[in-house]
């Protein structure tokens, strides 16, 4: 009995009223919980999708511009890197090939041909497991393509290149993570990384046809990138390289930025809807409570309560509902945390 009286009488009235309308109270708490959860999900989604993925992506030194030529090499890259406005330049080649995923089943394969695996400067990627760099007739595979081709380190993959269309066997010796590529299992495409020697053994000409450059600052300023790229083109043409065309990838944007934007938009809409819905529910709960107690409020004033004291009581009940809602979301989030730590590994 004495313990109960630690709470003053007026707050016992508040608790009593909330308890009297258990269903309504529970509904309000639930509504607040859903609202907070909705907004929380949106915020978390924003922070994960925008911040972490972008940070991941920008960490790869994505190419500001790609200049297509016949034979880009290290000498050219070194010369271009010394130009003002250019931070890095690296020769590359991307070959669209096919990879066998099962009997008579082929998938699209983007083969990235790298001149020097130990000196990646543009569009970098990291080894997750296995060996680095790949030796001749060996291939590294991007991790998101693994479920697609159902192969592992040590397995042999069969590849067809466009030039001669014959089957070539390469050994998988490492798995890499390349944040610059869209998820292979989503886009139904595999990514492989090979040396120039390996390219030659696949029946392709031994040449790199891209010079990828990264500008030294304002990597999102398209006008600046265009200016620098045009300068590089001029220098290349003076040196006798023919530049067939210049590509400026969506400046500083993740390859799936548009899909991400629409996903974020959906999240936003759901979050706002949940918030509006819960606000309406809470508002109606509180106004129901108030209109039910107009007479009680009058009585309390007559027996000595000030307007502030009464306002305090009803603010208190709203606060109590809010804290209960927050607490249930917190408990929910604690349960979720374990699950999402698991599912994060996928991406």
């Amino acid at each position: 009995m004495e313990v109960v009286y630690m709470i003053s009488v007026r707050w016992r009235k508040v608790l009593g009223d909330l308890w009297l309308n258990k269903t309504r109270t529970l509904l309000a708490v639930l509504a607040i919980a859903i609202g907070i959860f909705g907004v929380g999900t949106v915020l978390a989604g924003y922070s994960i999708l925008t911040h972490e993925i972008n940070a991941n992506f920008l960490g790869t030194h994505p190419a500001s511009a790609i200049l297509y030529t016949e034979n880009a090499d290290d000498k050219l890259a070194a010369a271009v890197e010394s130009l003002p406005g250019v931070a890095n330049a690296e020769p590359r080649r991307i070959v669209t090939a096919r990879i066998q995923a099962g009997p008579n089943e082929y998938r699209r394969l983007l083969l990235f041909v790298i001149d020097d695996f130990n000196n990646l400067r543009v569009s970098t990627f990291k080894l997750e497991r296995g060996n680095w760099p790949p030796a001749d007739r060996e291939i590294l595979i991007e991790r998101s393509a693994l479920p697609l081709i159902k192969k592992e380190i040590g397995d042999t993959v069969i590849i067809q290149t466009p030039n001669n269309g014959q089957d070539h066997e390469l050994k998988v010796t490492g798995i890499v993570h390349d944040p610059g590529q869209s998820p292979g299992d989503v886009d139904n495409i595999a990514y492989g990384y090979i040396t120039l020697n390996t390219l030659e053994s696949l029946g392709e000409t031994r040449a790199l046809n891209e010079l990828r450059i990264v500008v030294d600052e304002n990597s999102k300023d398209v006008t600046r990138i265009t200016n620098v790229a045009n300068q590089v083109r001029d220098v290349m043409e003076k040196r006798g390289y023919h530049v067939s065309h210049v590509e400026i990838p969506n400046a500083g944007k993740h390859p799936h930025a548009d899909q991400m934007d629409s996903l974020l938009f959906l999240l936003e809409v759901f979050g706002i809807l949940a918030l509006i819905l819960s606000s309406i529910l809470v508002a109606s709960t509180v106004s129901a409570l108030l209109s039910q107690q107009i007479r009680q409020i009058g009585v309390m004033k007559v027996i000595g309560a000030t307007t502030y004291q009464i306002a305090g009581l009803y603010f208190g009940s709203v606060l109590l509902l809010g804290v209960s809602g927050l607490l249930s979301v917190f408990l929910l989030a604690c349960g979720q945390a374990g699950h999402s730590r698991y599912s994060q590994r996928k991406y």
Binding site: R10, M300, I303
Partner: peptide, 8 residues
């Protein structure tokens, strides 16, 4: 009966 004492 205690409520007015609490308020006042």
């Amino acid at each position: 009966v205690m409520l007015p004492m609490d308020f006042c």
